[in-house]
Design a protein around this nucleic acid. Sequence first.
DNA 1: GCCAACGTTGGC
DNA 2: GCCAACGTTGGC
Length: 152
Amino acid sequence: MAKYWLMKSEPSVFSIDDLARDEKTHWDGVRNYQARNFMQSMKLKDKVLFYHSNADETGVAGIAEVCREAYPDFSAWDPNDSHFDPKTKKDAPTWMMVDIAFVEKFPRIVTLHEMKDAPQLEGMTVIQKGSRLSVQSVSEEHFKAVVKMAKG
DNA sequence: GCCAACGTTGGC
DNA sequence: GCCAACGTTGGC
């Protein structure tokens, strides 16, 4: 049974349009244990709400799916990478990533504001105050409700 | 640009 | 193990 997730990206860095162009990407650079743990429990074909943060319109921009399960995030070993972690060793990787593939771009952004106003999304992590986690788990009900909001 | 939230670090 | 200082995230 597929599970559902939400992953945040700043569209000025990597947007849903970038994912559509590239078709898939590796989700490197996550340096938070809780977010990493969520990625480690992702399975092939799990669905992901692609969320735009720090944008003109913050909110869910489309859907992606997991196309490769967790494996070591090699950017942690690259001194030239902005997410370099000098403490992690190659024989004991601390940080993991998954690959995700483009599924669809919503006809419109489902904004954070309207998600906060939607009673059917009550309890969803992303609408909690101070929710900074970049990878979150989403219930099937909430996932379907967001898709319905996007398509009307 | 401001600032609240919150994770991490390091002194003790 | 506590907690203050610090850095980052991300909404506004």
